[in-house]
Design a protein around this nucleic acid. Sequence first.
DNA 1: TTGATAGGCAAGTCATTGCTTGCCTATTGT
DNA 2: ACAATAGGCAAGCAATGACTTGCCTATCAA
Lengths: 106, 106
Amino acid sequence: MADDVFKALADPTRRRILDELTDRTGQTLFEICGRLVTKHGLGLSRQAVSQHLAVLEAAGLVSTRREGRYKFHDLNTAPLEHIVTRWLGPKTPQTPQTPQTPESTP
Amino acid sequence: MADDVFKALADPTRRRILDELTDRTGQTLFEICGRLVTKHGLGLSRQAVSQHLAVLEAAGLVSTRREGRYKFHDLNTAPLEHIVTRWLGPKTPQTPQTPQTPESTP
DNA sequence: TTGATAGGCAAGTCATTGCTTGCCTATTGT
DNA sequence: ACAATAGGCAAGCAATGACTTGCCTATCAA
C-alpha cells in the first residue's frame, strides 16, 4: 500500500516526473520525455520513462486516461498526504530529545 | 540532500526502525534489534540493523550520541517536514483534474 | 493504403543494495 | 586481569532495479 509509494519516490527520475506533472498535469509519454531531456539534462529512452510511469501508476501517484492514440497522465497527490504523518507526532513537531537509559541493563 | 531521505525511507525495515524510535527515542542498537525480532517477526542480524541505522543517520533522520559503551539513537523528524509539500499544492489539496490537450500537436 | 506517430511487451545487461560471515576494538563488571 | 557486553570494519553473495535493444500493435493523416 504505502510501501509502493515509498518505492516509487525512491528514484530521482520519478520525482522529476512528478515535478513535471505538477507543473502541467495530463501530459503524454512523449511530452514527459521531451521535458526531461530539455529542462533537465536527462538522456533517457522512451521505455525508461514508460517504466517509471508504470511504477508511479502502481503506487497510485499517477492516473491515466486514454483518448485515441494518446494516453494522458494525471498527477494524484492523495497518497502523499498521510505518509509522513506516521512519524510526525500529532501535536509535538519537535521531540525535545529527552535522554533515556537503555531498556534492560542486566 | 532530500535524495538521501527518500532513499532511506525506501526500505520497509528502516521504516520499522523509525516506528520503534517514534515509540521510544534514544534506543541502542541491541534494543532496536530486540524490538524488531519480538514485536515484528523480523529475523535480522545485528549488522543489518547497524547498516540501516547508518543510512538513516546519513539522511539526517537519526542522530546519535555516545555514552560509554552505549550509543543512543534519537529520531529526528525535521527532514520529513518539507519533503512532500513539493508536490502538494500550496493551497489546493486536490487538483481538480482539468483535462488538457498535448503541448505540441503537429 | 501507406506511412508516420504514440505506445506496449519481453528479454538481456549492469550497477546497486540488503544481508551475511568473520574478525577486531572499546568499555564495563567481577 | 579477564571475560562479557556494545559496537565497528570489510569482503562476499544473492536479489532487486534502472536502463537498453528489438520488435510488435494501434490510431491518425496523406
